Simulated assay, not measured.
Amino acid sequence: MILEAAMLQVKSGLTTEFEKSFKEASSLISSIEGYIGHELQHCLEDDHKYLLLVKWRTLEDHTIGFRESSQYQEWKALLHHYYDPFPVVEHFTCINLD
């Protein structure tokens, strides 16, 4: 499993609209092959900051399957105008500590 993480900084005054748009966009990402689940966390210290965590089966399910899909084009149209600066997306894998 791969964990995608992105810190989202939403423009001032747009958090309510962003959250509504994100609810709508959630159905787009969840329809992609290899998608496992996602959550959006709201920062307690900074009202305009969110943490997006998405679980994917493989890295390619995100970087190719989602990013090269028509759903991603809709996702971009719904969400990308809210961000300043544009978020850095990183991918993580679990380390076996046994």
Score class of each variant (00 low, 15 high):
Ser26Met: 08
Glu74Ala: 13
Gly34Glu: 09
Gly37Lys: 11
His81Met: 02
Thr63Asn: 14
Ile95Arg: 04
Ile2Arg: 09
Tyr82Trp: 04
Tyr72Thr: 02
Asp61Phe: 04
Leu40Phe: 12
Pro87Met: 09
Val10Glu: 01
His81Pro: 05
His81Arg: 10
Leu97His: 14
Ile29Thr: 13
Gln41Leu: 12
Thr15Asp: 08
Gln71Trp: 04
Leu28Asp: 00
Tyr35Cys: 05
Ala77Phe: 04
Gly13Trp: 15
Leu40Trp: 15
Ala6Tyr: 07
Leu52Ile: 01
Ala5Thr: 15
Arg57His: 12
Asp61His: 13
Glu39Val: 07
Leu3Asn: 05
Ile36Glu: 10
His38Ile: 06
Trp75Ile: 02
Ser27Trp: 08
Glu4Ala: 07
Trp75Asp: 00
Thr16Pro: 01
Gly65Gln: 11
Cys43Met: 08
Lys55Gly: 04
Tyr35Pro: 06
Tyr83Gln: 04
Trp56Leu: 00
His81Phe: 09
Gly65Tyr: 11
Phe18Met: 02
Pro87Lys: 09
His91Pro: 06
Ala5His: 08
Gly34Cys: 06
Glu17Arg: 11
Asn96Ser: 12
Phe22Pro: 04
Gln41Pro: 01
Thr93Arg: 15
Glu24Leu: 07
Leu97Pro: 00
Tyr50Met: 06
Lys23His: 10
His81Val: 01
Phe22Gln: 08
Leu52Asn: 10
Ser31Lys: 11
Thr63Ala: 10
Phe66Ser: 05
Lys55Asn: 11
Pro85Asn: 03
Ser12Val: 09
Met7Pro: 02
Tyr35Glu: 02
Leu97Tyr: 13
Met7Asp: 13
Ser70Asp: 15
Val89Tyr: 10
Ala5Pro: 00
Leu79Val: 03
Ser27Thr: 00
Phe66Gln: 03
Val89Pro: 03
Leu8Asn: 09
Ser27Gly: 08
Leu78Asn: 06
Thr93Gln: 15
Glu24Asn: 10
Leu8Gly: 07
Pro85Ser: 03
Gly13Arg: 11
Thr63Trp: 12
Tyr72Asn: 07
Glu45Thr: 00
Phe92Pro: 03
Ser12Tyr: 13
Glu45His: 09
Phe86Lys: 05
Gln9Lys: 11
Leu79Asn: 03
His38Leu: 09
Tyr35Arg: 02
Gly37Asp: 14
